[in-house]
Amino acid sequence: MKKYLSMVLAIILIFALSGCSGEKKVLIGLCQYGEHPSLDNCRLGFIEGLKEAGFSEGSDYSLDYQNGGFDDAVCTQIAQGFAAEGCTLMVGVATNAALACYAASEDNDTPVVFVAVSDPAGSKLTEGNITGTCDKLPVAAQLELIRMLQPDAETIGIIYTVSETNSVSTIKEYEKTAPAYGFRIESIGVSAQSEVTLAVDTLINKGVDCFSNLTDNNVVGVLDSILEKTDAASIPVYGSEVEQVKKGCAAGAGIDYYELGKQTGRLAARILNGEKAEDIDFETIENYSVYINPDKITVLNMALPDDVAQKAVDVTK
């Protein structure tokens, strides 16, 4: 019984002690959906954006960064923890984390800022004290890039996860836009990460001319094993973000998630300066960059047109 009592006391003490710190200071609670290079860039960019707008971490605000590990229930608890702490501002990185923060703010009117939500209106993240940035993949730019690097290509293979909203909506966009560039899309929807490599084999056997990636968490998570297979078959993979091209995709037109984060950080600064989140419309990032991996392009015996080389960012440099 004594031991039991001491355990309860210890727990209470931990709660109480953690309640003492950081009084009357601006506290930002940031919930990131999971560990993912793009999402990490969002977070780091966000902190940088705030800094550029005059808010430095530590001196001007303290940051409570939590990672949900791709678990919705954990995100819920994290967000409710933020509400309990009395955060000045809650930040949700990726849709599900944003939804958790938004739900936790239902009664206390804490402003919520979201980063990297592809469809804020569809996710009903537009009403109330909330704003943020939307990441829409530059599908047309990607198709144009593929056409320039592979003038004879006909089919593009895409693997996506059927349970990821962003991927499902982007696939539709691809299918709508591809014919204008003379492509046919061969897509396979998977429900788990373990199915991705099977899907790669299937698409290679179907004879696709190249692969194009979405920002699909499941698929991007096993990019290395995808590249292993495509390299063996000498098929180029086009990434959707700089980190993917660094890993070994031939090229890619994508959003710079660090920039997206910075843009969101500036939005957050406006709220910290007194503006209401509900008065600020969410922003969609339109700027994209083209990234190339010249080493990979050489290995795959592809020609690199000069106009692509000039405007693209070389990730090996």
Partner: peptide, 10 residues
């Protein structure tokens, strides 16, 4: 203390 109560409620 308020935070402790809030967290306990949550």
């Amino acid at each position: 203390m308020e935070r402790f109560i809030n967290l306990t409620v949550s």
